[in-house]
Amino acid sequence: SASLEDVKTAVLGLLVILQTKLYTLPASHATRVYEMLVSHIQLHYKHSYTLPIASSIRLQAFDFLLLLRADSLHRLGLPNKDGVVRFSPYCVCDYMEPERGSEKKTSGPLSPPTGPPGPAPAGPAVRLGSVPYSLLFRVLLQCLKQESDWKVLKLVLGRLPESLRYKVLIFTSPCSVDQLCSALCSMLSGPKTLERLRGAPEGF
């Protein structure tokens, strides 16, 4: 439990870093931090981490990651405290083949985003970082199938509809809506759902 406290501190630090690096160059920093966060949550489900502190780590990670939004130009952003989304000039939600690297070039400044813009690109060529939603999407499927803490599952179920409104997140990387529907149906009809959940409301 003591070591998990250190892990929790590290994860919180990564969330803060991602919130900053999403809007700064090099964009590969945001890509790497995002991948680290998603990989860490995957390990929770792989090794069945069920301690309360592990659940709190997942809760905080999902609470942040499910706020990711994308505009029509595929640029990622996060809402501010007033709910207004600021889109990044440097990070996009497109999935890119590994051989192309985590970044790609664009020939010049991008068109203005639909929300308040981030800082304008400084040079004639900007390297865009790929932060594909499919990585998070796979972890969300694991959550629906394996999550043991009701608070975490409730958060994910509550945030998913709003995330799905931003269709560009889903359609720019390999996210299977069929698998999502299947996971939701299995969660509702499967007898093991109630068996594994802690803290579920009576009558769920």
Score class of each variant (00 low, 15 high):
residue 131 V to H: 03
residue 11 V to Q: 02
residue 143 C to N: 01
residue 162 E to L: 09
residue 81 K to N: 11
residue 106 T to Y: 13
residue 29 H to Y: 06
residue 130 S to F: 10
residue 72 S to T: 09
residue 111 S to D: 13
residue 134 S to R: 04
residue 85 V to P: 08
residue 49 Y to N: 02
residue 35 E to K: 13
residue 36 M to K: 06
residue 125 A to L: 12
residue 73 L to V: 09
residue 149 D to C: 06
residue 18 L to M: 12
residue 87 F to C: 04
residue 136 L to K: 01
residue 193 T to E: 07
residue 58 R to G: 00
residue 143 C to I: 01
residue 10 A to S: 06
residue 181 C to Y: 04
residue 39 S to H: 14
residue 185 C to E: 03
residue 87 F to D: 03
residue 69 R to S: 06
residue 128 L to K: 15
residue 133 Y to M: 06
residue 39 S to I: 06
residue 168 V to G: 07
residue 102 S to C: 14
residue 202 E to N: 13
residue 180 L to A: 02
residue 204 F to W: 07
residue 5 E to C: 09
residue 140 L to Y: 05
residue 90 Y to K: 03
residue 156 V to G: 00
residue 42 Q to C: 13
residue 39 S to L: 09
residue 12 L to T: 15
residue 128 L to Y: 12
residue 53 I to G: 02
residue 136 L to N: 03
residue 131 V to P: 03
residue 48 S to V: 10
residue 23 Y to T: 05
residue 194 L to F: 12
residue 178 D to E: 15
residue 45 Y to M: 00
residue 31 T to K: 11
residue 138 R to G: 15
residue 172 T to G: 08
residue 114 T to S: 13
residue 172 T to P: 04
residue 151 K to M: 12
residue 70 A to R: 02
residue 28 S to D: 12
residue 169 L to N: 05
residue 159 R to I: 05
residue 176 S to C: 06
residue 188 L to I: 08
residue 68 L to K: 02
residue 128 L to Q: 13
residue 12 L to R: 15
residue 58 R to V: 01
residue 75 R to P: 02
residue 76 L to S: 06
residue 166 Y to G: 06
residue 52 P to L: 02
residue 104 K to H: 14
residue 97 E to Q: 11
residue 20 T to C: 11
residue 127 R to Q: 13
residue 6 D to P: 06
residue 99 E to T: 13
residue 79 P to K: 10
residue 132 P to R: 08
residue 42 Q to W: 10
residue 33 V to I: 08
residue 152 V to Y: 00
residue 181 C to G: 05
residue 13 G to H: 01
residue 155 L to E: 06
residue 200 A to Y: 14
residue 7 V to T: 07
residue 9 T to K: 06
residue 52 P to A: 10
residue 127 R to L: 14
residue 40 H to R: 00
residue 201 P to D: 10
residue 114 T to P: 13
residue 19 Q to V: 03
residue 16 V to R: 15
residue 115 G to W: 13
residue 2 A to G: 10
residue 78 L to Y: 15
residue 13 G to L: 00
residue 39 S to W: 11
residue 13 G to I: 00
residue 1 S to A: 11
residue 172 T to V: 02
residue 50 T to G: 08
residue 28 S to C: 12
residue 80 N to I: 07
